[in-house]
Each structure stands twice: as structure tokens, then as C-alpha cells.
């Protein structure tokens, strides 16, 4: 009979034994060594029935197909742009994947210049981590104004919250427009004082993401910072 060696939602370090016996199955962030399941990184244990996985607490963004990210133009090619996507790899946006039709001899800097930030979508990732992105889709555009901050990409699900509850609460409290890229880059636009509050809130979420009762703590934090009451509808 299998035996669990750790409790759910505890923090484990690489090489820690999580379970014994063949009843449990290793998932993401774990591996099997003979009859034991071992953590393969620093993370939060998540036990789901027979599956044991660890949710990583740190690490660079790993590009995945379908992710909407915020990227920075770092170079311009003959027929596209090179983007920094806050990962170990850069991405390429081809002119074919730009929003409108671009003529062959057009000046590409007119569309996206070096150092511009864009919201874009990953359409392809190869085994060698070559990344292709596209601007075709709703909400994909060049970012003008506002400020960019970099957050830990592993905390993005907590920044967004269940069904977008956390980010909409911050938007409601600060009246800023906020876009969170899956790669951890966040774009904020609003009045300067309110933008600072958003930055502080996101830093707080990053630090306390693994501690339960996050939404309530962020709510009180935002109420204190903005001096106004927030009504949130519970998202189930």
C-alpha cells in the first residue's frame, strides 16, 4: 500500500521524497525512483487523487502554444521582428502574421519599432524552442503609454485569479487598465498614483501567492491604499 510522506500544499525542496509505493503517479515537477516519488524542484505539493505534482515557485517562462504574452521588439529582420519574451528564448513575428497586409518593400519600423511592447499570441513552439507569434486575434496590439513591470511567470495564475477575479478587483479599485501576459510581463495604464498602487499590489501577490486567503488580504490592502470600499462578486 502506498504511503504519502508529505502533506498537500507544503513546500518541498529538490530531491525530497513525496510518496512511497506504486499507488501514486508522478506528474509535473516530480519523478519516480524505484518505488518512491521525488520532487524535481522547489515547489508547492499538489495531490490530486493518485497524481502528485509540484507547482514551481520560480523559474523563467517556458513558451507554450496558445499563450498570450507581452513582448518587446529587440530587432528587425528582412521580413519580421525579433521579440524578447522574458524567457530563455526569443520569438519571431513574421510580417505574414502582422495585423494588416504589409507590402514587401515597406518600412517595418512604421509598424513596430525597436523597444516597442506588443501583446501577442504564441502560435508555434518547436522542440528546439523556436517560437513564432502572431498578431491576428482580438486584443492583440501594440502598447502605447502606461508602464511595464516584470513579475514571476509562475505567479501569473494568482495575479489573474479564478476567472480573472483578482485582476478585475485591482482594475475596479484603481481604475487602471491592466494586461497580464502569461510570461509575467504586466502592462498598467492609468493615473500615475494609481499605477503605483497596482505595482505594489502585484508585488504583494507575488510574495504571498502560496499563502491561502490571498483574495481577502489583497482586498483589505487595496481598500487601505485607495481609501474606498470594494464590492466583489464571488466567482465560483
Amino acid at each position: 500500500m502506498g504511503k504519502l510522506l508529505v502533506e498537500n500544499k507544503t513546500i518541498v525542496t529538490p530531491g525530497e521524497e513525496l510518496a512511497e509505493g506504486m499507488d501514486f503517479l508522478p506528474a509535473e515537477g516530480t519523478f519516480r525512483d524505484k518505488d518512491k516519488i521525488i520532487a524535481s524542484g522547489l515547489g508547492l505539493v499538489n495531490i490530486n487523487g493518485r497524481l502528485i505534482k509540484t507547482i514551481s515557485m520560480a523559474g523563467r517562462y517556458i513558451p507554450k502554444r496558445g499563450d498570450t504574452i507581452i513582448a518587446k521588439v529587440t530587432d528587425i529582420l528582412m521580413s519580421g521582428w525579433i521579440l524578447d519574451i522574458a524567457s530563455a528564448y526569443s520569438a519571431v513575428l513574421s510580417v505574414k502574421e502582422a495585423k494588416d497586409f504589409i507590402r514587401r518593400d515597406a518600412d517595418l519600423t512604421k509598424y513596430y519599432d525597436i523597444d516597442d511592447y506588443i501583446i501577442t499570441n504564441i502560435i508555434r513552439v518547436t522542440s528546439q524552442r523556436l517560437v513564432d507569434v502572431s498578431m491576428k486575434g482580438p486584443g492583440l496590439r501594440k502598447l502605447i503609454g502606461g508602464r511595464i513591470i516584470k513579475a514571476n511567470s509562475n505567479k501569473v495564475p494568482r495575479i489573474i485569479g479564478k476567472g480573472g477575479s483578482m485582476v478585475s478587483m485591482i482594475k475596479q479599485a484603481t481604475e487602471c487598465s491592466i494586461t497580464v501576459g502569461q510570461n509575467g510581463i504586466v502592462w498598467i495604464s492609468g493615473s500615475p498614483e494609481k499605477e503605483i498602487i497596482v505595482v505594489k499590489t502585484i508585488k504583494k501577490i507575488e510574495q504571498e501567492a502560496h499563502i491561502s486567503g490571498l483574495t481577502d488580504r489583497i482586498k483589505t490592502f487595496l481598500e487601505k491604499e485607495t481609501n474606498k470600499k470594494i464590492n466583489i462578486e464571488k466567482v465560483e
Binding site: F31, S40, G41, N154
Partner: peptide
Amino acid sequence: LADAGIPMKDM
């Protein structure tokens, strides 16, 4: 290395 979230089998 563990703090950086690098996949590690052990320490």
C-alpha cells in the same frame, strides 16, 4: 539553483 527554479533531481 533551487531558488532559481532550475529542474533538479537532488541537492
